[in-house]
């Protein structure tokens, strides 16, 4: 076997290994389970936001104020709800990144809480403090949030923590509902953690309208909700955010490998020794 052939085979093996590693990351779609018919309270983003200011609309919950935590946590601050909407702003330069927004409503023995996060394209501290801060009696919290410019993606597994009065809650039933229609019921483990594999349920939806920016990007909202009845009160808490299609959505890896091999073939004359090899 000559050197050119060895080199060519080596390159193909490298690509094949990488492709296999990538394929193993694919996870199966979640099974569809019919969940509760009751609408979970959510905080929905309103389009038309700016880099420093975002608007949320309350749905399924009624309150006069929301509470906001910056990425470094702390005690948070209150914002008014006007006509079912609230406007969240970052508090100055380098105070951006993720912000947690929570709202709470008490109706007799029922205590509802809706939560979401907003991302501001403004540098700021890591959201560790924000995620560990206690929000309500019953919390459902992402263990980690996607990094800057990232999103939860279909096929990826992410952990969420359920806490009751600040302590992990094992064995709690957690409902997952996506805008695309996937419903799942999950249960927290001994550490109060539940793993969510975001479903690959974008396939049958129509293509989004084209746009200049990311407005045409496919996104689907999801809600994670959990309830707890301690006899005196019924606690209902939800966390809603969004996820996007998986890494290989509308992509063809075999086509990519094919063009890469074509490129390799095109470059092969460069690495072949000629009969009278001279430095050209």
């Amino acid at each position: 076997m000559d050197y050119a052939t060895r080199t060519f085979l080596l390159a193909i093996v490298v690509f094949a290994n990488a492709a296999a590693a990538a394929a193993s990351r694919h996870a199966a779609d979640l099974p569809t389970i019919v969940g509760s018919s009751r609408e979970s309270p959510v905080l929905l983003p309103v389009a038309g936001h700016s880099r420093r200011e975002k608007v949320l609309r309350l749905s399924g919950i009624d309150a006069s104020r929301v509470k906001v935590w910056g990425p470094d946590g702390g005690s948070g601050w209150l914002l008014p709800v006007i006509q079912g909407k609230t406007t969240v702003k970052t508090r100055g330069p380098r105070r951006g990144g993720y912000h947690w927004v929570g709202v709470r409503e008490v109706r007799g023995r029922y205590v509802d809480s809706a939560n979401t996060v907003l991302y501001f394209s403004n540098p700021g501290p890591a959201p560790r403090g924000m995620l560990t801060a206690r929000k309500s009696e019953l919390d459902i919290l992402p263990v980690e949030l996607p990094r800057e410019h990232r999103h939860y993606r279909a096929g990826e597994r992410w952990d969420f923590l359920v806490r009751l009065h600040g302590e992990p809650l094992p064995g709690a039933s957690v409902r997952f509902v996506s805008r695309n229609g996937t419903r799942e019921r999950l249960r927290t483990d001994a550490r109060g953690l539940v793993s969510v594999v975001f479903p690959s349920d974008f396939a049958d939806l129509p293509e989004p309208s084209p746009g200049h920016g990311h407005r045409g990007r496919r996104k689907a909202g999801f809600v994670l909700s959990v309830s707890h009845d301690d006899g005196e009160s019924v606690l209902n808490t939800s966390f809603n955010y969004h996820y996007i299609p998986g890494a290989y959505y509308n992509k063809d890896l075999r086509l990519g490998i094919g063009f890469a091999v074509l490129g390799m073939v095109a470059a092969t004359p460069l690495i072949r020794r000629r009969d009278k090899e001279t430095r050209s």
Binding site: A21, A22, A23, A247, N250, D252, L253, L255, A260
Partner: peptide, 12 residues
């Protein structure tokens, strides 16, 4: 870093 997703061709 172990992912071939950027090698895949977007066919949309």
């Amino acid at each position: 870093t172990g992912t071939a997703e950027q090698l895949a061709v977007n066919t949309s």
